[in-house]
Design a protein around this nucleic acid. Sequence first.
RNA 1: GGCGCUAUCGUCUAGGGGUUAGGACGUGAGAUUCUCAAUCUUAAAACCCGGGUUCGAUUCCCGGUAGCGCUACCA
Length: 491
Amino acid sequence: MPDPAPSSSRALRVRFAPSPTGFLHVGSARTFIFNWLCARHNHGTMILRLDDTDVERNTEASVQSIFEGLRWLGLDWDEEYRQSERLELHREAAFQIQKKNFAYRDFTPAHTGDSEQSNAQGAWLFNPGMRELRREESDRRAAAGEPFALRYRVPRGEGRVLRFTDGVYGPQSKLADEVEDFALLRSDGMPTYHLASCVDDADLRISHIIRGQDHLTNSFKHLLIFEGLGVDPPQFAHLPLLVAPDGTKLSKRRHGPVVSVTTYRDAGFLPQAFVNFLCLLGWSPKNDREFMTLDELTGAFTFEGVNRANAVVNFTDTDPFDPKAVWLNAEHIRALRVDDLSRLVQPIFEQAGFHPSPEKLHAVTPLIRERIKLLCDAVSAADFFFVDQLVPYDPAELIPQKGDAALALRVLQTAEQVLATTPFDHDSLDKALREAAASLGIKAGPMFQPMRVAVCGRKNAPPLFETLVVLGREVCLTRIRQAEERLQTLA
RNA sequence: GGCGCUAUCGUCUAGGGGUUAGGACGUGAGAUUCUCAAUCUUAAAACCCGGGUUCGAUUCCCGGUAGCGCUACCA
């Protein structure tokens, strides 16, 4: 083991340690974010460690998908490790723990029964006979090749109380007698999660372990391992879990793609909005602020702000995203500069089969910025700017509320004349079209609605004059003439 | 079953021995506007239950209940 003498003033080092058994899950992403916030807030070191000791379930594809997710979040890390490359360290540590008599060999065959049933009568603590096996016999059986698991020799019968102060949950204690003799090494010689994790945390001089609350009770075991290793344990801080509306822990199996961060990315969430949303789940700056930039989050982050109850991510079958996440995303979109939004939305239009020039897109962007909640909404909000031919619409939509086809036709004919002769800028069009309405003896509404439908192909669209300007005179005139023809078909 | 953790509007949360229990999302109504959106105003909506401590508990303590987690040679 490396230098085991940490000082209380050692540098802050935190780690995010996902096991690559699938895509990056929103709960994991949140754990990563809180670790990152803690690191950056305290000018510490952020470490990414892939806990990939479970060869059965780990895949390289998962590793890639985790990187993909993290890259999208846009949060960095300073050091990177793979647990599978540190196997020797773990084995050596296990050997040292055993040597110090903090662990013993258990030759009992692996437990295969239904664990629920075996737990029904009470907690299993250790396999009788194995804890007290004489050293010589244990050595002999091991030398003879008999498989064994290495178990921690949890202190018993001395009333020992295990204690630590959690950064979120406060003082924690548990009777050592109630902790089972957990495994350190499996009978195939591979380290368990508990061992590998603690050995690496010690070796990497992790100062704060920030992880999901599902590890809260595991921390007592980890305390014991650190003791066996002869190092001071790090500080612990557990985060409340993210749960589904039914209260169960978010899981890939039960809840599907809604728990994958790539689902949010693909739906057009902004990473900063997603991060903002996740931070607000189980944490509060306590000042009623909700919309926050990464810098603001970093500045405001403290463990005191972390809530202790699980947080529900509110999705349904029809709507996979929490309404608050969507709202925050809209807020972040509105906060974007036109340049940036325009650049983000470009690939989305490309995917949808539109190929707007950057200039045109730049002109369209301000018209849709306040009208979209997700980036992908941009296509349905602005497609009419980029098509050659409007998709057919119901000509009846051209007729204003209190009017008839004849009025609509007069409006369009008047509009056609105005558009043909007026300078094509916002203010001129505004003035000329309002005057035209007045000359027809109608209000702005009945004047603009037929025009809007004619030009956009639908009733709900961005403001008319801006739209006309972006579309350009020729396109507007063409579409208005087409609308007039469509109107004829009604009569 | 054992152990641990948790409990404020539907959801995310603030608060805390005496408050009209605050904000936000969502929902309803209204205002504004050329539609939509945005914006503004407004309404409905919460302290799990029972004991105790106290002049007074939603807040502190205990119990119950419920939920979650751990209870694997998974992580």
